[in-house]
């Protein structure tokens, strides 16, 4: 079974997913970060494929992408790292679902078919491609992704209509990524804002898929708030900001996860 599905069958509440940009702060940080996240009990990881023009991202993730690209990160190298990592982790039996998150153009240039095959080889369970629209995916790419056992995760926002949420829920597998507010990444949520009605609406819709809340989650308070309404939450910018240097990764990550949970 797909490991994302397995995860949500075994655990329903307070799931913590962490996003980080591959190749940041250094090109060889990817696997170290993965190791530390798993050691510290994170449930799910989203590995960001750096892109020159990340339209939905705020300054922190933009910067991390820029540095990752300068470090020489690209999809071929990332797959090499992940395939190596998988070989080692199978022995260690420490595996959690890995998701690749990135903009469509680098994936398109890499080749969709090759991308799916490599994901499979690297043990990737899902993908998030924010600028690959739902219709386009269903029409052209669904079969290829499915063949490689990949679950493509779709986003919804406070502005998404109920009809569209239902449509997305119908074809989604894995989980639904609920963007917390109308914003790019890195705009930290205010705890007393009016996201409640949106979360309550989602709750009352009784979706068949689990829901993870992302964008703006940055501390224990916002994490817990998101978890009250959803199965868990995703943290990106705050995590990236907490990484100081390649040398301090171990302690940075331990401290960060402890502060959230």
């Amino acid at each position: 079974m797909n490991s994302i599905k397995e995860l949500f069958l075994s655990k329903k509440k307070n799931l913590l997913s962490i996003y980080f940009t591959a190749g940041f702060p250094q090109i060889n940080s990817t696997c170290k970060i993965l190791d530390e996240l798993i050691k510290n009990g994170v449930d799910l990881v989203e590995i960001g494929i750096p892109f020159s023009d990340p339209l939905a991202d705020g300054p922190s993730i933009q910067k991390s992408s820029e540095i990752a690209l300068k470090n020489g990160m690209n999809l071929s190298f990332l797959f090499e790292q992940l395939i190596q990592y998988r070989k080692k982790s199978i022995q260690k039996k420490n595996q959690i679902p890995l998701i690749l998150m990135g903009y469509f153009n680098p994936v398109l240039q890499f080749g969709i078919e090759k991308f799916c095959e490599k994901c499979n080889e690297a043990g990737i369970s899902g993908t998030i491609i924010p600028d690959l629209p739902f219709d386009e995916y269903n029409k052209h790419y669904w079969k290829l992704f499915n063949k490689s056992g990949l679950k493509n995760i779709f986003l919804i926002t406070p502005q998404t209509s109920e009809d569209r949420i239902k449509e997305i829920d119908k074809v989604s597998e894995g989980f639904i990524y609920a963007v917390s507010s109308a914003s790019t990444t890195g705009n930290f949520l205010k705890i007393k804002d009016d996201t409640n009605s949106y979360f309550e609406k989602l709750n009352s819709m009784k979706l068949k898929n689990p829901v993870m809340v992302g964008f703006g989650i940055f501390n224990r308070e916002t994490f817990q708030k998101a978890c009250r309404f959803a199965n868990g939450a995703i943290i990106g910018t705050a995590f990236i900001n907490s990484l100081r240097t390649n040398k301090t990764l171990k302690s940075d990550i331990k401290q960060f996860v402890e502060k959230i949970r």
């Binding site: 939905a56 629209p133 386009e136 779709f154 986003l155 926002t157 502005q159 209509s161 569209r164």
Partner: peptide, 11 residues
């Protein structure tokens, strides 16, 4: 052409 936009811009 087309509209390759993140869901946030869809509405």
């Amino acid at each position: 052409g087309g509209a390759f936009i993140p869901e946030m811009l869809f509405p």
